[in-house]
Simulated assay, not measured.
Amino acid sequence: MTDRSHVLIVDGMALLFRGFFATAFTGNFMVNSKGIPRNGLFGFLNYFTNSVETFQPTHVICCWDMGSQTFRNELYEGYKSNRDAPPEELVPQFDLAKDIVTAFQVPNVGVTGYEADDCIGTLTKQLQKDHQVTVVTGDHDLLQLVDDNINIAIMKKGQGNYDVFHADNFYEKKGLTPKQIIDLKGLMGDSSDNYPGVKGVGEKTALKLLMQYETIDNLLADKENLTKGMQKKLDQYAEDLAISRKLAAIHTEVPLTFSVETAVWNNDLTNIRTYLIDELEFQNPGRWLDKLWEKATG
């Protein structure tokens, strides 16, 4: 058992989107008297408070995208160009979700030109030496960050279900090392983020190649011993492979200054209770706060 402090980093984008789409299909956006939709906020609160209750952190941070354009769009014009704009009912809930986090006295972290993933990656690397770090997300791209003292908790279907990846179980679960996730996506591309990889190389082939060669660099160094078909693909799509590797890699040197002292989890939930009732008109904030209060007071 360690006496290290435990920092929980919450992927705010993942939680808010998940909360919104979990209820949006019903058409009930939970609009309050000010005309503000709150269905995403309701789900966000469910996931946020459950993650704190589950992982019992000493510190909490929440990370966000800061607009749709990042350095990856400069690297590759088509990056995420296949995605629709957020639904109009979701748009006002982004800032309100950040206000909720602030009311919890938790810092919001985001840097223009970078994704939330990059901020999360930067923070995990800054904090892992002196702290245990757990990241809560639904984004499997973040698995490349798993390392000593860095766990990634992937949200599963149903509230409170997490698949926790750490340095000791990662290979058993994935058949790869965390760093190989970057090369896996470099080879196979990513349809959700709209970058190509090597055309004709799917996950099964990419996994087989990485199990044999470990890295793309090793693979390319031994290209002459590959099948003629694979040689042709690697030659024909060499540029796509190179750019896809860059796009897949989470940037861990975002220019952000952060003091972990600002992230100490505060068990005084008065501010958030008042905010949820007076500003957002949630009638029963106890559904999110009572369990946290019980944990705090023992």
Score class of each variant (00 low, 15 high):
V164K: 07
T134K: 06
S259R: 02
D193S: 04
H140R: 15
V146C: 01
D183W: 13
K208G: 12
Y171S: 15
K129S: 09
F170Q: 05
V135K: 07
K246G: 00
L184W: 11
A249N: 08
V136L: 12
V164M: 09
D190Y: 11
H251K: 09
K185G: 06
G202D: 09
E253S: 14
L226V: 03
I182H: 00
A221N: 11
T137S: 15
I150E: 03
I181R: 02
L220G: 03
D222Y: 01
T227E: 13
D217T: 15
M211T: 14
N218P: 10
L207R: 07
P178Y: 02
D168Q: 09
T257F: 10
H131P: 02
K174H: 02
L234N: 10
M230Q: 12
I150T: 12
K233E: 06
I154D: 05
A238L: 14
A153D: 08
K199L: 15
L145V: 13
L234Q: 12
K228M: 12
T227G: 14
L241I: 10
P255A: 06
S191D: 02
A249P: 01
S192C: 05
K179N: 11
L176C: 06
E214I: 06
G186E: 12
A238W: 10
I181A: 07
K157R: 08
L256I: 14
G202E: 07
L210P: 06
A206I: 10
A206T: 04
M211H: 11
V133D: 02
L256K: 09
I154P: 06
K129D: 13
K246T: 07
K223A: 04
D139L: 10
E172K: 14
V198D: 01
L184H: 11
R245Y: 01
L145C: 06
V254I: 02
G200P: 03
